[in-house]
Design a protein around this nucleic acid. Structure first.
Lengths: 117, 117
DNA sequence: ACCTATTTGTCCGTATGTATG
DNA sequence: CCATACATACGGACAAATAGG
């Protein structure tokens, strides 16, 4: 898995790492169900602290794209895409947001705030 | 704001702190829009590390209950219930979309498609 | 415009705990 | 029992946003 980080970037290192892993998965560089390197190893290879990698892993776990378990490591979740459920989620979000009085632009902002690349 | 933590508990300190703050808000001990103590202060009063308090604050921010800003401190959000539900919906949508391999731009497109003005 | 203090954000390092195999 | 690997908590350092003088 090829990831590069730039300590001079304005983006936090953990964001860069999370993005790199998302890309690696999207590109099929790491397959579904496959294991990602241990935090300690990835940290060493990127020359960052283990906590920084663990924070990136934690983000991806909250996004539901990896499974993180102590003693076992990190694996990419293998789940088929369900576009129907996705559309339903989007519909429900918009409905709730409308009820709360949000404009379309505000809804987009809200979504983007939860979709940090 | 009265919070108690037990280092002997099986629950992490940051969970205990977050729970304590949720309760304090629910009980009206701290009002909407009011400010919570600086992380450093709360940490000192609970005899825990500042980072532990910051982690608790981060959790509550993700839940949409509080607003945390650098240099300004932490304030309780006006409509926690609605915003919290919205944030949760947005989080879930993004997680599902990520799992389906969508990029941020594609997620925004999906939302906009359901938010025709 | 400048300076200072405050406050959170990020990153590092270390130590210890806990689940897994 | 032992090694691996993440989880929690501590501490320190510096950066960046904010507020106020």
């Amino acid at each position: 898995m090829l990831i590069r980080v730039d300590s001079g970037s304005s983006l936090p290192l953990y964001d860069q790492i999370a993005s790199g892993i998302r890309r690696a998965i999207a590109d099929g560089e790491v397959g579904r169900g496959e294991r990602l390197p241990a935090a300690k190893e990835l940290a060493a290879s990127l020359d960052v602290n283990m906590h920084t990698v663990l924070k990136a892993y934690g983000m991806l776990r909250e996004e539901g794209i990896i499974e993180v378990r102590r003693g076992r490591g990190v694996t990419v979740i293998d789940q088929p895409a369900d576009r129907a459920a996705l559309a339903e989620s989007a519909r429900r979000l918009v409905a709730d947001a409308r009820r709360a009085g949000l404009t379309t632009a505000e809804i987009v902002d809200l979504v983007e705030a939860h979709a940090t690349d």
